[in-house]
Design a protein around this nucleic acid. Structure first.
Length: 192
DNA sequence: AGGAAGATCTACT
DNA sequence: GTAGATCTTCCTA
């Protein structure tokens, strides 16, 4: 399957977040491939965004957000790994958080990783999908545009769906504009 | 050392 | 459906 080019991520995070919907996240394990369709995302900016990990300036743990676009940025919150893809125009700061997937292949393994049987609960949340795909900070900085990476993003099947947007979830100080995007009506969206 | 962190699970009303 | 406890790392004092 064709991977998205680096240029795809070198745009405004909100645009990238929106267009990532319907794309396919591919996780390569030893001898197995897990994949899922992106159904929910959130955009995070840099120092002008109070909700962003980069808000307080560059630190060691958020350094990836300042790196060139197209890399994975993974951080731990409340005992969950959250999966982001660094996305911003050249020289900017920002990332897109993958909040939910719809399982495509390797479902058996995901169920094993998660310890739940319900399909809707498998990857319908940022912390859930990382567990299902066995994503940890080991993959931090991995280049999603490189064929050799253990985690990549590929073009999805051509399909039509409605995109809905809301403000971000659980954020204390959100920006005025809606920065969360999801495929309307999809069962695997975490909320709504 | 202490606490916050943009989630999840479980157990209740 | 709502509420509360718990999860693990990093930041600040």
């Amino acid at each position: 399957m064709k991977l998205l080019p680096k240029e795809f991520y070198e745009r405004d995070p909100a645009v990238v977040a929106c267009e990532l919907l319907g794309k396919v996240l591919v996780r390569k394990l030893e001898g197995e491939i897990l994949s899922g369709k992106v159904v929910e995302t959130e955009a995070y900016y840099g120092e002008e965004d109070p909700a962003s990990k980069a808000y307080k300036g560059e630190k060691r743990f958020n350094q990836l957000m300042f790196c060139p676009a197209g890399k994975l940025f993974i951080y731990m919150v409340h005992g969950n790994w959250l999966l982001n893809i660094v996305s911003h125009p050249e020289g900017g700061v920002g990332a897109v958080l993958i909040r939910a997937l719809e399982p495509i292949s390797g479902v058996e393994t995901m169920i094993k990783n998660r310890g739940v049987k319900k399909l809707e609960c498998l990857t319908s949340g940022p912390g859930r999908l990382t567990k299902a795909l066995a994503v940890t900070n080991e993959l931090n900085g991995e280049d999603v545009t490189s064929e050799n990476s253990r985690l990549t993003v590929a073009e999805g099947m051509p399909e039509s769906f409605q995109i809905a947007s809301t403000h971000r979830i659980g954020v204390k100080f959100d920006l005025p504009q809606p920065l969360r995007f999801y495929i309307k009506g999809n069962r695997h969206v975490s909320k709504g």
